[in-house]
Design a protein around this nucleic acid. Structure first.
Length: 931
RNA sequence: AGGACUAUAGCUCAGUUGGUUAGAGCGCCACCUUGACAUGGUGGAGGUCAGCAGUUCGAAUCUGCUUAGUCCUACCA
């Protein structure tokens, strides 16, 4: 073995072996366990969120697979309507073409070409992550099976009246020319203006103040062509008399009424609101209440249409805004302009300002679907982890809007609806099916709806459509009710809720039993990672490493503003002055597991990753030690008599406890605790103590064959079990080592290939827990640590062998000493150990206490008197502080009376111990001072 | 505006149903290249658990308020 752990040389060859072996696909006939991957966007690349979620999914799947379950981790990607269409359109743009130049059919062909060539990026990256997904079952939301399921669902929902077509305001992206759902609109505060316009009153009416106009405030002057009323609050004294009167809409020279509506807040602005029912969601509601006409003033590009006076026609909305304001000013109707912060809605893909726009769209009426979906979570059929996310889910579900599912794109599932010449709509799987279903004559000309479905529509069918639905296939029966969904909170609405609704509707079953919501990985400063901020960390760079210049180049590429690029470059150089080292997949995975504590936000800390890379190296080197001492020898593979030392029994006992802790942590989705238990065991028990305790046995010429066999056997077997225990989190390293260690531990996997993936997952054996051995080792550790403390504090060279004396020990101490002398001598580097009988005198010494027993290190020539007094004083102060606290507690009558007996007894015991410690320390200090 | 969450060592975070001497990793200080490992070993320093009040024999843990920060939802034209 190499002297240090080199991840890059072991990982990918192992993955290739795994994938070839077929072990990723469901095995055997055990109980099914399935996890459906949240299908990543086919245009996407692996980001930290994926790496995090995939690591957890893979850890679960690997563990269940090792436990003998018939596991399926279903992979696949989603077709990402807008994103994919944009990618391909951008390619066309480079050739000065638009999709319209190609036509729909040719364009879609182009998209498929792109997918074949570039759509596999994320799959390749998943292989680097070690994801044990069933590649032979990989699905794509546009593949034939999924498409058939989508059609089936659409037709059924339409026939039931749950899907309908309606004309209403939608969020319109005037650049991408499509409707988007309200979830895809991001409203952020931006700086803008508030314009105050005078709207002249008609028929010589005057306000209470005697003015012949009223003033409305607006952030969107260009929409004034669509104004159908001016609203005031019903109880607003200022305008009470004007309700029912009319104003003359300037520029358009139309008469519109003044109405009273509760929607108006009389404290805000002037108390007068212009109402534009076709271009504002709130105004639309007001318009409905007052039967106002819907006057659309925009084209699909959000330019002014022919409703407006000629001068404004064809002007883009923002140009129109300028002209309108100028014209108001020219007419003397501009009262004032204030700076104003407002929320501007933008599309999450193209970033264009979204327009509320009147169009015909397809909707899903969600109410009947929502009820069972709420109930499934209320009844506990579906559980959120952490539980608090239920609230988020309920809050949204109970205030659900109908879901706009049509998109004016070319890439996606085209809606299976046809229209006749009169615009009557027919829905079925194909034109042929339509004619049959609705008994239409061949002479009736039908044209298909151009729109496609929202990508999330197909994604919502993921758990069952991937398993063969609507056929009741074996896969469908076994796996479609999956066990755990792992995802981020940002798509609870987009995906999780919709998946629950659709799955309950069409399979009468839940899509998953548990929803594990992960935290969001942020950068080292706690900022959300985003390309535009240039603070993205690519998980592959953590695995493979990247030099500083490449990292800077990567982060600043494609940045529009050079100034921003400069800032990003500087921040990157400050944070990663040496670039990023290659830490390997296992270290990254273990780090991610250790961060999975249920918190909402996770700051990614490179130091943590480095620490766990070092942990990998620790495991690697522990293995080297084990192999060096066992490879050439009998380790009990074929039986043979052996004898276990106290250290052997201790580490075996600790292993059982670790197995309990790790399994429990997995069951409760506390991957951080599992990681911590593994780390603690391997580093601080196995390496720090057990390996050291094995040396005196292995290197002692007087050790018997039975003792040697016992220790070698334990060394190998405990390591082997640890590897299986850790495998779900660090698959590559454990496989690599296991190949060498398992045969020596006489452990075999369930398959011919002999991969740790199919070896059994360790379960604790209560019989092997050994409290006596643990107490004995605790005693040994206390003695050694006492001596090491004196060495450390007194600056005694580690190479200097010390004589020690033991005083005031009990019979048990004596027995323990006799049994473990060698361990003490070796690990504390002792030259001699002398047991003092009661009353026997000792030379002046530094003291450590192990219970009642005093461990004495003679000071002669080694230890400075003052230093030892100082050290004792420090210990004394600490003990006295504790003593005081406990005395206070026990002096409290309420405590004695009301606390449980066990607690009181424990405090009393502590008091006794501390009293004795204090007395001994004092005595020791006094006698040294008396010198 | 409503709701949720967070606040523990210099940094990143654990801390189960209230009973601790409040832990870990990284960082820091001192010593050490001994035959698994300097991606290491040994020892050590470091915390009024955001603040205030309350419940309790007992609070990092439960309740209320305050402060600071984050997020979500709804938004004022």
């Amino acid at each position: 073995m190499e002297k240090t752990y080199q991840p890059q040389s072991i990982e990918q060859p192992i993955y290739q072996r795994w994938e070839k072996s077929g072990a990723f696909s469901p095995q055997g006939s055990g109980e099914p366990f399935s996890v459906m991957i949240p299908p990543p966007n086919v245009t996407g690349t692996l980001h930290m969120g994926h790496a995090f979620q995939h690591t957890l999914m893979d850890a679960m799947i690997r563990r269940e697979r090792m436990k003998g379950k018939r596991t399926l981790w279903q992979p696949g990607t989603d077709h990402a309507g807008i994103a994919t269409q944009m990618v391909v359109e951008r390619q066309l743009q480079a050739e000065n073409l638009t999709r319209h130049d190609l036509g729909r059919e040719n364009f879609i062909e182009k998209v498929w070409e792109w997918k074949a060539k570039s759509g596999g990026t994320i799959s390749d990256q998943m292989r680097v992550m070690g994801d044990s997904v069933a590649w032979d079952k990989e699905r794509f939301t546009m593949d034939p099976g999924m498409s058939a399921a989508v059609q089936e669902v659409f037709v059924r929902l339409f026939d039931e009246g749950i899907i309908y077509r309606g004309q209403r305001l939608v969020n319109w992206d005037p650049v991408l020319h499509t409707a988007i759902s309200d979830l895809e609109v991001i409203s952020e505060e931006e700086n803008g203006f508030m314009w105050y316009f005078r709207y002249p009153l008609a028929d010589d009416v005057k306000t209470a103040e005697g003015k012949d106009y009223i003033v409305v405030a607006t952030t969107r002057p260009e929409t004034m062509f669509g104004d159908e009323a001016v609203a005031v609050a019903p109880d607003d004294e200022r305008y009470k008399d004007l309700v029912g009167k009319e104003i003359i809409l300037p520029l358009a020279n139309r008469r519109i009424p003044i109405i009273a509506d509760d929607y108006v807040d009389k404290e805000f602005g002037t108390g007068c609101v212009k109402i534009t029912p076709a271009h504002d969601f709130n105004d639309n509601e007001v318009g409905k209440r007052h039967n106002l006409p819907l006057t659309n003033i925009f084209t699909d590009d959000a330019a002014i249409n022919d409703i407006a006076p000629e001068k404004y026609r064809g002007l883009d909305r923002f140009d129109a805004r300028k002209v309108v304001v100028e014209d108001f000013e020219a007419l003397g109707l501009l009262e004032k302009i204030d700076d104003h912060k407002l929320k501007v809605p933008r599309g999450d893909r193209g970033n264009a300002v979204i327009e509320p726009y009147l169009t015909n769209q397809w909707y899903v009426a969600v109410e009947s679907l929502a009820q069972p979906a709420i109930k499934a979570v209320e009844d506990g059929d579906i559980n959120f982890v952490p539980k608090q996310w239920e609230n988020t889910y309920f809050a949204w579900m109970k205030d659900l809007q109908d879901w706009c599912i049509s998109r004016q794109l070319w890439w996606g599932h085209q809606i299976p609806a046809w229209y006749d010449a009169d615009g009557k709509v027919y829905v079925a799987h194909s034109e042929e099916a339509v004619r049959e279903k609705y008994q239409l004559a061949d002479s009736v000309v039908l044209t298909r709806d151009n729109d496609v479905l929202d990508t999330w529509f197909s994604a919502s069918l993921w758990t069952f459509a991937t398993q063969g639905w609507p056929e009741k296939t074996e896969d469908f029966m076994l796996f479609s009710e999956s066990d755990v969904l792992v995802t981020g909170f940002d798509i609870i609405f987009f995906w999780v809720a919709r998946m629950i609704m659709m799955t309950l509707k069409f399979t009468d079953n839940i899509p998953f039993k548990t929803i594990y919501i992960t935290g969001l990985i942020r950068d080292e400063r706690g900022d959300k990672m985003s390309k535009s901020k240039g603070n993205v960390i690519d998980p592959l760079d953590l695995i493979n490493g990247i030099d500083l210049d490449s990292l800077v180049a990567k982060r600043t590429s494609g940045m529009m503003q050079p100034r921003l690029a400069e800032k990003v470059a500087k921040a990157t150089r400050d944070t990663y002055p040496d670039g990023i080292q290659a830490y390997g997949t296992d270290a990254l995975r273990f780090t991610l597991c250790s961060l999975a504590s249920g918190g909402r936000d996770i700051k990614f800390d490179l130091n943590r990753l480095e620490g766990y890379r070092n942990f990998c190296n620790k495991i690697w080197n522990a293995t080297r030690y084990v192999l060096m001492n066992t490879e050439e020898f009998d380790c009990g593979q074929n039986g043979g008599d052996y004898e276990l030392s106290v250290a052997d029994r201790w580490i075996i006992s600790k292993l059982q406890k670790t197995e309990v802790a790790v399994n429990q942590a997995f069951e409760t989705h506390r991957y951080d605790l599992a990681a911590q238990a593994l780390y603690e065991f391997m580093w601080h028990e196995y390496c720090d103590w057990y390996l050291e305790l094995s040396k005196p046995v292995l290197w002692d010429e007087n050790s018997t064959d039975k003792q040697l066999l016992g220790t070698r056997r334990t060394l190998v077997r405990v390591l082997e079990a640890f590897l299986r225990l850790a495998h779900p989190m660090m698959p590559f390293l454990t496989e690599e080592i296991w190949q060498k260690v398992a045969p020596m531990a006489a452990i075999k996997a369930a398959d011919d290939e002999q991969t740790i993936m199919l070896a059994s997952y360790p379960e604790a054996d209560v019989e092997k827990m050994d409290e006596t051995a643990e107490a004995d080792i605790e005693w040994i550790k206390s003695v050694i640590e006492g001596i090491r403390n004196i060495r450390g504090e007194m600056n005694i060279a580690p190479s200097k062998a010390l004589p020690i004396l033991l005083r005031n020990g009990s019979e048990q101490d004596y027995v323990r000493l006799q049994d473990n002398k060698v361990f003490l001598q070796k690990l504390a580097k002792l030259e001699a150990i002398q047991w003092l009988a009661q009353g026997e005198s000792a030379p002046m010494s530094a003291t450590a206490l192990v219970g009642e027993m005093e461990v004495l290190v003679p000071m002669a020539g080694l230890i400075d008197k003052e230093a030892e007094i100082g050290r004792l004083q420090k210990e004394l102060d600490k003990a006295l502080k504790d003593l005081q606290r406990i005395e206070g507690k026990l002096g409290n009558e309420g405590f004695i009376a009301k606390a449980p007996e066990a607690v009181v007894a424990k405090e009393k015991e502590k008091l006794a111990d501390l009293t004795s410690i204090v007395a001994k320390l004092k005595e020791q200090k006094d006698s040294i001072e008396a010198l």
